[in-house]
Design a protein around this nucleic acid. Structure first.
Lengths: 345, 345
DNA sequence: TTGAAAGCGCTAACAT
DNA sequence: ATGTTAGCGCTTTCAA
């Protein structure tokens, strides 16, 4: 006869457990587990019986328990600077989808613009034992980078091409974008460039590439000669309007503007319209992002298309590969960019 | 003498555990746990010793283990229809922040527009043992509703005011919004209303309230008399342009348009501008959402402001209260809406 | 192909 | 104020 009831009662969630499914199906818990995690090695008859039992008792697995036992949580963390920024939406969205298709879930962390937050947030995420972490921003604090690196969790940095990635990387060169836009503008007859830009680090690097190319082509005496209106990121339409107004009021001559986001560009187009400044006749305008409205502005916006979807997919893939113990052949992906020529240039 | 090494070796994540911290601090694991989860009942000296040990060994708690043991995961799940939809951003963002401030994390699930997905996704989320689930969309499938209700997990539905909530609710009445906009338009001399709308269920309810009010006021013979251009949600700017074009081409007279999102309204404004249709002189335009650009369009957009931030905060609060075992006095919150009068009406 | 035992890292319950 | 013990629900390891 088995021992009497245990001395120390314990709550229990009240939810159906593996053991109950096993009892109903007349097999061991282990067999049920096998059916759930790879029915390959279980005969079809058993699989059916177990599946029927699962449906009958309405079993929902407890992945916290599973994750604890196996060391794989099927959770992925993503760190974004601000959800408001529409550029990252496609990436996050495709990340969520690619993960969900394989039973993974995304935890979303938002790190404003504060160093301390970042470390805490990261620790909170790590404490959940994610199988991977996706960054859409460069980590501000060295402490955060250390914590990440020492955690041993696979990391994918996105939207950038840094020389010394923490781990894996999916991105493109912002300098090259700037230079590419400059080339395009020059080819379209622009000789006096200007810039409307958010104040984030990546926009600054696009600015570098842009200014340098114009210097190389002799349109600008030096990089610091470029007329610039800088605005707070994330920049709404109104900032673009006011930025163009400021540039015009400064009295400096320019015949082309590169804007660090399509939203800013839309604002520039509106302000130009309000001032009866002909686009592209008197002013060429180029945006960045190819947001959903870019094709429908008047005039249709020439811009830079970034394949955010692909970045999300690739990031998901890299992490899931690692989570399954596979080595990743190509840890760094330059996905490039595409200049989309419409009517505003 | 203790028993020899266990027969059955087990991996172990290799990460630092509570036990190691305890050993270093010279206390029991339980004491370390207490320090982490509410140092109230631990003397300051002990707290300091334990904290020092934690820092020394670089301990990061394993919340999967903690959650399994305690039944509280400090995870909250949110289900959104599409991240792309800018209206929900504020809600999600403030949800993330309110949660993070209390050590909770958000898992984000995206349910496209497919029934099967929804049930699977929900099950995947539930399997993580979240302390609460926030819905920004109405659940399509009855099966999903059942699963949720029977899971016993606190649920907050948002962005709506349904008569029979699953559990808790934070939202507003879309019918009232429609009626409110109609009243405002009538007060501004609009007598021949039209509508540009996305095809989602909530926009449909705003449409109902809008049309009915115009019928009540004698501007429309019947609800079905309202000139409507319906577009696919989520609707970009271009859809708004084409929608206005369609309304005009239909030959029906109208002097005011209510658009189901600000993005559509911006498209309507642009199309009106391109056609030299004076706004608000010949056409009054009202949007919905008070997106960040609404104040900066030409003319500035009259619209409906919804306090998405407050919704997110309230939802977080309700769930965290429940997670701490507190009863929630007010499970249903109508946060109302605000008509923002600018220049387009 | 299936099962039994052990234990993942933590917290609740009891004991002092 | 602190320690001991049991166990959360699952998967791994080993044995049959």
């Amino acid at each position: 006869m088995p021992a009497a009831a245990s001395k120390r009662p314990r709550r229990g969630s009240g939810r159906v457990t593996l053991a109950e499914v096993a009892a109903v199906a007349g097999v061991s818990a282990q067999t049920v587990s096998r059916v759930l995690n790879g029915p390959q090695n279980v005969p079809a008859a058993t699989v059916d019986r177990v599946r029927a039992a699962i449906a009958q008792v309405g079993y929902v697995p407890n992945r916290m328990a599973g994750g604890l036992a196996s060391g794989r949580s099927k959770l992925v963390a993503a760190l974004v600077p601000a959800l408001a920024s529409p550029v990252f939406q496609e990436t996050i969205e495709s990340l969520i989808r690619s993960l969900a298709a394989n039973g993974y879930q995304l935890m979303l962390g938002e790190s404003g613009y504060d160093d301390v937050d970042e470390v805490q947030l990261l620790e909170n995420l790590i404490s959940r034992g994610p199988d991977g972490i996706v960054l859409t921003r460069v980590l501000q604090s060295g402490l955060a980078r250390e914590r990440l690196a020492s955690s041993g969790i696979p990391v994918v940095e996105t939207w950038d091409l840094t020389p010394d990635p923490v781990d894996m990387l999916v991105g493109f060169s912002h300098e090259q974008v700037g230079a590419g836009v400059a080339d395009l503008m020059i080819a379209h007859g622009i000789r006096q460039p200007a810039l409307v830009t958010g104040n984030d680090p990546r926009a600054r690097r696009r600015r570098q590439g842009y200014a340098r190319r114009f210097v190389e082509r002799g349109c600008l005496a030096s990089v610091s000669d470029l007329p610039v209106a800088e605005v707070e990121a994330p920049a709404p339409l109104g900032s673009g309007r006011r930025a163009l107004a400021r540039l015009i009021d400064s009295g400096r001559a320019f015949d082309g503007v590169f804007c660090s986001t399509d939203m800013l560009a839309l604002g520039v187009l509106m302000e130009a319209g309000a001032r009866k400044l002909e686009v592209p006749g008197r002013l060429g305008v180029v945006g960045f992002g190819d947001l959903v409205f870019a094709a429908d502005t008047t005039p249709a916006l020439t811009t830079v298309r970034i394949d955010g979807r692909r970045m999300g997919q690739l990031a998901a893939q890299l992490i899931m590969q690692r989570a399954q113990g596979q080595a990743v052949a190509e840890p760094v992906h330059d996905i490039g960019f595409e200049l989309v020529l419409r009517d505003s240039l």
